[in-house]
Nucleic acid binder design. Structure first.
Lengths: 338, 338
DNA sequence: TTGAAAGCGATACCAT
DNA sequence: ATGGTATCGCTTTCAA
């Protein structure tokens, strides 16, 4: 039935072999680095391959080598301004290392089991996950021997390879600076209660404030969006006389700034200091010039990728946490003295 | 050498078959929808599969069905604030349709040949491309029978399936409104000259201005970034007395706003009107409230996905362009009267 | 250096 | 309804 039509697919190694008058094995070898094939035959094969537009079928390769050359990247929500930069860098670095990115985004954290199902089915060589994993899910990576690196997440229950930016170092400078310059009453705009990253940041700031003997700061929460920060600031400022607001991320801090200065006509940092966390691009924009702590995304993604490849090469490598400190970006939205 | 260890991989259909006491074929059928398998055997197989954590190997499936279930998404630069939203939606919709996303980002447009090489090798079912393709590259999709939809790009040389947002409709309203409210001298901040999208927007605005009998507006160019818009505005305002600046995208418009109002102390829109294009989130932030034209990203991504799947189902479907008009977002950075 | 042949893990057709 | 077998396109011994 199937007649001899020009293969729409670009052809197989058999097509190339026939055309070059060699065996299929020869073609295969020719495309594997460090193979032993005579210059003359190689030339003939290359020529035939080019004429046919032949490329080795990665799917077939994966099946036999048990290496798909794909890495899953799982990110909770891309609309968070912080993630596109991370994703861009991860993708870039992975492709430099010769790996392809299989991207998964989560609408709800509950999607993750479906995502992991796909991850298993596609035989990815490894995964970088910026989402919360249960210990059962972590164990699944273990038993299947799939390399895993968590990004800005950790697990207390099971040790696992991870890279994260710790709130403490940079934030301590911020809080201490604000206290030194006279701030006494703080408030915090945190992330959702079930967000591990958000919660860590809240705790870090609160601890530091308590340590200074100041009143426990009120906490309002948002989903890391501008609107959430805007509304949280309104609520907080309606109920409390505040010297400073600490937001769990930059975008909420920007929303809070606008609520404070545009709606409530507060001078920043004169009447109110506001600080964020992340170091996203808009925080630097001149209308905001937010005082914040920048995550060293470049070093963090580099670390994540190299940890991942180490574990792809050597699956028995143990867990390891790599912690980076954020860099203080002074900005002009908080009065810091030292 | 390899002893009978618990397979780290989750096992194959043979393992399941052995455990359930059936043939491997039965296992395969059991995982294909609409198969004919007795309830009793199905139950045994399912149980065995669960015990082993078995999932059908998508790589092996792809090899024989010639359907990888993967769609390539190729995006020029993710750091452009507009793309994360597009990517998030594409990914979401693709996974709803049961497809996986193989993501490629381009540092330079010249990377694209390498990317396409990977695309061929991985036997993706289709591709959504938001980057410039040469006609040779377009032809390659044709001959390999890989479904293709361009996003916000088109090709004059070869007809191809595409979805884009046309500058004209919304922008016409903007320009006409500004002219009606008294703007006479315009300037344009365009994208790089080799950017097709940027260029179309420049041309659209310029045509409209000429049509009104006004002076040909000076053009400055940037790479779509905030900084580029900021600097372009400085250059333009140093050389020309302007009533209005039209930027090819929102982020450059925001940069221009800050240059004008913060550095040059111009009132917006009193002294100078500024408009953008895209409708990204920061344009809505209260410190900017940019007057712009919003691309209907939701409808555009939906259209792109459905066109793509139509073409995956039926590879012989002809080219089709789907054009969407942007929605005018009034904002407060341009005086428009009607 | 080269070719023949055995898998990799599934699907699909064909008997039974 | 179930099992046997060829096949997808490649890599990988193993001989020649």
């Amino acid at each position: 039935m199937r007649e001899r039509e020009i293969p729409r697919t670009g052809g197989t190694s058999y097509d190339v072999a026939r055309r070059a008058g060699v065996s299929q094995s020869a073609v295969s070898r020719c495309f594997r680095p460090g193979a032993s094939v005579a210059p003359a035959t190689r030339a003939r094969i290359i020529e035939a391959a080019n004429e046919l537009g032949y490329r080795p079928n990665a799917i077939a390769q994966s099946l036999i080598t048990r290496r798909s050359g794909m890495v899953a990247v799982i990110i909770s929500n891309l609309t968070n301004l912080y993630y596109p930069e991370v994703l861009a860098q991860l993708t870039q670095r992975l492709s430099e290392r010769g790996a392809r990115v299989l991207l998964f985004t989560l609408q709800a954290e509950s999607d993750i089991d479906n995502v992991l199902d796909q991850v298993w089915r596609y035989q990815v060589d490894g995964a970088i996950v910026a989402a919360r994993l249960s210990s059962a899910q972590l164990r699944a990576f273990e038993t299947r021997g799939t390399a895993l690196v968590l990004y800005n997440r950790e697990s207390d229950e099971a040790p696992v390879a991870s890279v994260s930016c710790e709130f403490a170092a940079g934030e301590t400078l911020l809080v201490d600076g604000m206290i030194a310059s006279g701030c006494r009453s703080f408030a915090i705009i945190g992330g959702p209660e079930d967000s591990t990253v958000g919660e860590a940041r809240v705790k870090g700031a609160r601890d530091r404030i308590s340590l200074a003997g100041l009143a426990v700061p009120p906490i309002d929460r948002g989903d890391f969006s501008y609107e959430a920060g805007y509304e949280a600031a309104h609520r907080l400022l309606a109920q409390h006389k505040l010297d400073a607001i600490i937001a769990a991320n930059d975008v909420m801090a920007l929303g809070a700034m606008d609520a404070a200065r545009l709606d409530l006509k507060l001078a920043i940092p004169g009447d109110l200091s506001i600080v964020g966390f992340d170091g996203v691009a808009p925080a630097k924009w001149r209308s905001y010039n937010l005082t914040t702590v920048r995550q060293p995304v470049g070093r963090m993604t580099a670390a994540a990728i190299s940890m991942l490849f180490e574990r792809i090469e050597n699956p028995d490598l143990g867990p390891e946490r790599r912690l980076f400190s954020g860099d203080l970006i002074p900005g002009s939205t908080a009065s810091l003295s030292r």
